[in-house]
């Protein structure tokens, strides 16, 4: 888990002043984790990148309001966590897109076998990856987000609940159901194999 940035309020203030370098710094710090969350939510690299870009642009748009509410050098400014804000935005955008059914189609299956060396091992790896992705994708959107945030990104339940705009009890219940669903799907997948 990344440590909270101490100068998030200052970054917000710079972005509010339309400092492009500040946005570049934010992207450098947070884009990777945001991309992982988005990708594991939607299962598509292009759409994941699109979601991360949308989240960064929303931060750019709302930086003035964030800077106003969290002035740098104050206790409110010290409480500002851009990472948490961005994770929440990415999660919500991903859930919205999944619900709206606007996902770009899954990666296409190759029409013909690759004749290159080590093709068998690559196909095996792709099949394993596809199996894992199918496990996660089989979960409902919110359960999927709970697994992504807590298992893959190792957020605490409280942080994950905040990212999903939920109270902690409701999130724990959701996470419990998500794990149970995942285990059932995994068991079913094993039986199928």
């Amino acid at each position: 888990m990344a440590a909270p940035m101490a100068d998030d309020a200052a970054l917000a203030a710079r972005m509010a002043a339309r400092d492009a370098d500040a946005l570049r710094e934010v992207i450098a710090r947070h884009a990777a984790i945001l991309n992982r969350i988005a990708y594991r939510m939607v299962g598509n690299a292009h759409e994941a990148e699109d979601i991360v870009q949308e989240a960064c642009l929303r931060l750019w748009d709302h930086s003035a309001r964030l800077a106003q509410r969290h002035p740098a050098g104050t206790s409110a400014g010290a409480a500002l966590r851009l990472s948490g804000w961005l994770k929440r935005v990415v999660t919500n955008i991903a859930i919205d897109r999944l619900r709206a059914g606007r996902r770009i189609s899954d990666e296409e299956v190759p029409e013909r076998a690759d004749e290159a060396p080590l093709a068998d091992s690559r196909i095996e790896a792709e099949q394993r990856d596809a199996g894992t992705r199918a496990l996660v994708m089989a979960l409902p959107e919110r359960q999927r987000a709970a697994i992504v945030l807590t298992y893959y990104e190792e957020l605490s339940n409280a942080e994950a609940a905040e990212a999903m705009d939920m109270n902690i009890k409701a999130f724990e219940s959701l996470l419990h159901r998500a794990r149970a669903s995942l285990r059932q799907a995994f068991a079913a997948q094993g039986d199928a194999l």
Binding site: A20, L23, R24, I27, A28, A31, A32, N35, R36, Y39, R40, A45, A48, E49, V52, Q53, C56, L57, W60, R128, D129, G131, T132, R133, L135, V136, I147, Y151, Y152, L182, R183, F186, G190
Partner: peptide, 27 residues
């Protein structure tokens, strides 16, 4: 076993020039 299966979910990295693309869109 479940953790090993989940760990196989590899995430591709962002495309090169992602930051420039975002900055251009922001501008």
């Amino acid at each position: 076993p479940l953790a090993r299966a989940l760990d196989g979910y590899v995430v591709p990295g962002l495309s090169a020039g992602f930051a420039d693309k975002v900055l251009a869109a922001a501008a």
